[in-house]
Write a protein that binds this DNA or RNA. Structure first.
Ligand SMILES: [Mn+2]
Ligand SMILES: [Mn+2]
Ligand SMILES: [Zn+2]
Ligand SMILES: [Zn+2]
Lengths: 147, 147
DNA sequence: AAAACAATTAGGAATCGTTACGATTTATTG
DNA sequence: CAATAAATCGTAACGATTCCTAATTGTTTT
C-alpha cells in the first residue's frame, strides 16, 4: 500500500480528496508501524492545529473499511497501520514499545482447520506475537545505563 | 480451578474471606465461559444490590493476579473466566455470542520458535479463534425463523 | 465562474469501560 | 471485645471512542 494507490481507491469509492486525508496517508507511509488514533491526531495537528478527533477516527474507519489500513487492538487501544503489501494472509510480531512489526509467513489455522469443527462456526482468528524489537531494546539498555 | 481451591489460594495469599468473593467465584464456577465485568456486576447485584463496580474490578484483578481467573480482551472489553484445569499451555476457540470456549491443545509458537529471533525479544503471544458455537447458532436460526 | 449539492469538518458533548478516591464497614487476630 | 488492616461503597475522574449540528469545503452542474 502507498499514498497514491490509497488516494485512487478513495476516489473510486466516491470519497472526496482533502489535504488532511493525504497527509494522514502520508504519515502511515512514513511510519511503517502501528499508530494509535492519538498519535495520528498529534502528528496532523502540527499542520492543522484545529483538527478534530472526530475527523481522525472517521478517516481511520473509512480507510480500514477500504482495506487501506489494517487495525488491531493492543492494550485497550486501536492501532492502525498501512495494509501489508503481501497479498497472502499472514501475521505479525509486534513491538509493544514502538509498534514496529515483522511478518510471520505462516498461519496457525493451516495446521488445525481439520480439527476445528463440531458445529463451531469459525468467523475469525487472531495470532500476534508481542515483545520488543532490537532497536527499542538498545534504547532501553542505554537509558538503564546512566541512571 | 474450583471455588474451594480458589478460596484456599486466596487465604494463603493473605486475602480476606468475604461472601461476595465466594459468590463471584461461584459465578465463574457455574458459568464456564468468558464474562465481562458488567455481567459479573449484574449477577452479583441480584444478591448485593449496593455492590460497587470498584469491588468487582478489584476482585477480578486480584483473582487474575493469583491465576485463579484468566483474562482476555475481546472487542474492547476485558473478559474473565476460571483458569483452565489443563496445566499445559494452550489456546481457545471463543464463541463471541456467549463466551463459551473450546480448547486447542496446540500452540503455534511451538512451530516457529526457531525462526523468531533476530534481536526481537518475545514477551507474549495471543492466539484465539473466534466464531459462534453450535448452541448459539441454533438459537440464532430459530430467531430468524419467526421474523 | 457561479450555483447547487453532497461530503467533510470543527468543536464539543455524550457514552462506555475502567480506575481512583476518601469515608465507612467488615474480617481477622489475640 | 478491642485493635488493626483489608474490603467495600458511592461517586468522581479518566481516557478512548462515538455522536451531534452548524459551518465549511470539494465536486458537479449550469
Ligand atoms: Mn504484514
Ligand atoms: Mn483452556
Ligand atoms: Zn520497537
Ligand atoms: Zn455460544
Amino acid at each position: 500500500m502507498n499514498v497514491t494507490k490509497a488516494l485512487n481507491i478513495m476516489k473510486e469509492q466516491g470519497f472526496k480528496y482533502t489535504a488532511k486525508r493525504e497527509e494522514l496517508l502520508q504519515l502511515f507511509s512514513d511510519e511503517k508501524r502501528y499508530l494509535t488514533a492519538k498519535e495520528v491526531l498529534n502528528s496532523l495537528q502540527k499542520n492543522y492545529p484545529g483538527m478534530s478527533v472526530d475527523t481522525v477516527y472517521r478517516n481511520l474507519a473509512i480507510f480500514e473499511e477500504m482495506d487501506i489500513l489494517e487495525m488491531t487492538e493492543l492494550e485497550g487501544e486501536m492501532h492502525f497501520r498501512f495494509s501489508c503489501s503481501t497479498t497472502a494472509h499472514h501475521h505479525h510480531l509486534i513491538c509493544l514499545e514502538c509498534g514496529k512489526t515483522r511478518e510471520i509467513e505462516t498461519c496457525p489455522m493451516d495446521w488445525l482447520n481439520e480439527n476445528v469443527d463440531g458445529g463451531f462456526e469459525v468467523t475469525g482468528h487472531k495470532f500476534e506475537i508481542y515483545g520488543m524489537c532490537a532497536e527499542c531494546k538498545r534504547t532501553k539498555q542505554k537509558e538503564a545505563a546512566h541512571v
